[in-house]
């Protein structure tokens, strides 16, 4: 028996919008600690890791660890039927091949339930160890989205370089080149407008802009985004979900051969 009641149902709607284009089918794992997901895109280049901690739900009951395979496109269709202010409850019974999403309007005068078929998904789960990164950039998520969108109109790949001067996003395409440099800026009115660069060592990595732009669909989940870079590792692009957890995207770099 599983029953997860999320008062801020819009968070789940936003999560689905953020990940459904990257991953078609995924197993949602439910345990006493929270509701989570890890899934790779079909080409094994990008991975999404979602965590919604149990404490973030108004009511959280998960009698035993359960994995529920869902088609994210279909789940998104159902969650789009929930209002932005609705309370969303996810319900499941042991051994059942369906999951139910219940939507309650804030005034309790409209209650809907949508039952979705589950599916068996043979998903590969990767062990991602904690790592020390050479550089961590925290910046406004809207600024990161703007940069990725702008650069994608010029080129296909972005080189992200962190030095003590700042963080540089560069691209090159048939029509020319583009470089955008952000300097550390902590003298802002609101902390979420700051750009903070923590650098242990300079680092420069190349990534496909198509995936970066897909990650920025999570922009509405968080005012800030954290980009962790190491020359030996995939980049981690993390959007915190207020007091609940995170959506993290991992992207393997491109290398010169």
């Amino acid at each position: 028996m599983l029953e997860l009641r999320l008062v801020q149902g819009s968070l789940l709607k936003k999560v689905l919008e953020a990940i459904k284009d990257l991953v078609n089918d995924a197993n949602f794992d439910c345990s006493s600690s929270g509701f989570s997901l890890q899934a790779m895109d079909s080409s094994h280049v990008a991975l999404v890791a979602l965590l919604l901690r149990a404490e973030g739900f108004e009511h959280y009951r998960c009698d035993r660890n359960t994995s529920m395979g869902m088609n994210l496109g279909n789940m998104s269709k159902m969650l789009k039927c929930a209002g932005n202010d609705d309370i969303i409850t996810i319900k499941g019974d042991d051994g059942s091949d369906t999951v139910t999403f219940m939507f309650e309007s804030p005034t309790q005068d409209k209650i809907a339930d949508f039952e979705m078929k589950l599916m068996d998904i043979d998903s590969e789960h990767l062990g991602i160890p904690e790592a020390e990164y050479q550089a961590i950039v925290t910046m406004p998520s809207s600024e990161f989205a703007r940069i990725c969108k702008d650069l994608a109109s010029i080129g296909d790949t972005v080189v992200i370089s962190v030095t003590k001067e700042g963080v540089k996003f560069s691209t090159r395409g048939d029509i020319g080149t583009a470089n955008i440099v952000l300097r550390q800026n902590t003298t802002v009115d609101k902390p979420e407008d700051a750009t903070v660069i923590e650098m242990n060592e300079p680092v420069s990595l190349t990534f496909a802009l198509r995936y970066m732009n897909s990650f920025t669909k999570a922009t509405s989940l968080s005012n800030t985004v954290k980009i962790s870079l190491s020359s030996e590792l995939p980049v981690v692009v993390e959007y915190k979900i207020a007091e609940m957890g995170y959506v993290r995207f991992y992207l393997a770099p491109k290398i010169e051969e």
Partner: peptide, 14 residues
Amino acid sequence: KRVQLKLTEFYQSA
């Protein structure tokens, strides 16, 4: 020539 690496080259199956 740029080559796109895969995540499975960095992380093991758990």
